[in-house]
Design a protein around this nucleic acid. Sequence first.
DNA 1: CGAGATTCATGTGAAGTATACCTTTAGGCTTAA
DNA 2: AAGCCTAAAGGTATACTTCACATGAATCTCGTA
Length: 401
Amino acid sequence: MKELNNIFEKFLKKESLFKSKKVLQAVHIPREINHRDEQITQIANILSPTLRIEKPSNIFIYGKTGTGKTLSVRYVAEQMTTLADNKKIPLKIIYINCKLKKVADTEYRLVAQLAREFGKEIPPTGLPTEEVYNIFFKAIGEEKRIIILVLDEIDWLVKKAGDELIYNLTRINSELKNSQITIVGISNDLIFSNNLDPRVKSSLSEEEVIFPPYNAVQLQSILRKRAVEAFKEGVLKEGVIPKCAAYAAREHGDARRALELLRVAGEIAERKGKEEITLHDIDDAEDTIERDRIIEIVKNQPKQFQATLYSILLNKDNSKNKFIQTGDVYDTYRQLCNKTGLRSLTQRRVSDIIAELDMLGIINAKVISKGRFGRTREINLILPTSIELKVKKILEDDLFG
DNA sequence: CGAGATTCATGTGAAGTATACCTTTAGGCTTAA
DNA sequence: AAGCCTAAAGGTATACTTCACATGAATCTCGTA
């Protein structure tokens, strides 16, 4: 009889394996953050002058993806905001992710975005950048307060818009009477800061905080904690968490990835109508994640980028083992434009587009010299073959349909 | 045989152009006194 | 005369083009051992 009860119970539970899926999502900020105490106290210490309404030092934070940078900063920010609210401290923390296309990838757009944070309407183009700065200044100057500006993925911004803009930002303070602004730059490119103008570098990294990767043991404990909150009891089969941790540690201790693996594995198991998550689901999850990520990127590209990518795909089929080079891609691209009626761009531009696709991580393009046979980009697809067809299909739909 | 010169196919920087959007300004029309 | 609307003028950011020059190793050239 007892077993029968069990069966029913399980059946009822079957509805969902999750107790709370939110806990596993990247935006979720847990009550406690493990293994980052040192960094968090460091950041908190640096920012604490805020509470006496003094300007804290600028901070430069770096560490690989998924090492808890963004999370820790947001955590500290949240704590400070509530504290500031209680004690009536005029504090404003702005978080901006510079990687978002069309949001903050040029100087104009970044400053416009900042001004919008203060409720100002800024047109997408047309105003002098200088003017946007003025609007922003005015908005800040309205009342006395401390502003902390968190620039996530700041390396992207600098790559696309140059480092002058950061210099401008760090200089803002000298033009402000009422308020003070502190910049917190987050980057996962360690080399990036070396390429900065020395002046910019020194003012941006008055303080530095380094986030080392998690090791497998730490990843496991993080996963365990979250899993308890996220899943119902007994859902996780033995060894699931170690495997997730191992997968993520294999790269560079990427916790975000580990959590995502766990979540997607759960979703997959659920969809299959299973009652527990097995090791096999994790393998499936890994494929799914990679596929979704790439498809998402591909879908959101502008037409010209899609056309270029499609040309690369076509070239890959034709020239089997030989690697693909810019000229070939451009030829196919021209033909493609003819067929689809898309206005074709110059090779100069397509060359840049290829470089950008490389930055997005969809392809691998390295500039090489073939001696007598000139110089070109050696283009390789990084797409796993399993999703190549799917990507192709999407591109075809977008380009021809 | 080896040091330089040559060469190819394209990378890359700077400057120019087209387009879309903004503000300002001058004129024209309406309205109220 | 004052007020309001419109259209033209003058300005900017962005995506792209045009032009011109830079690259860098395989290959060629030619002098030398």
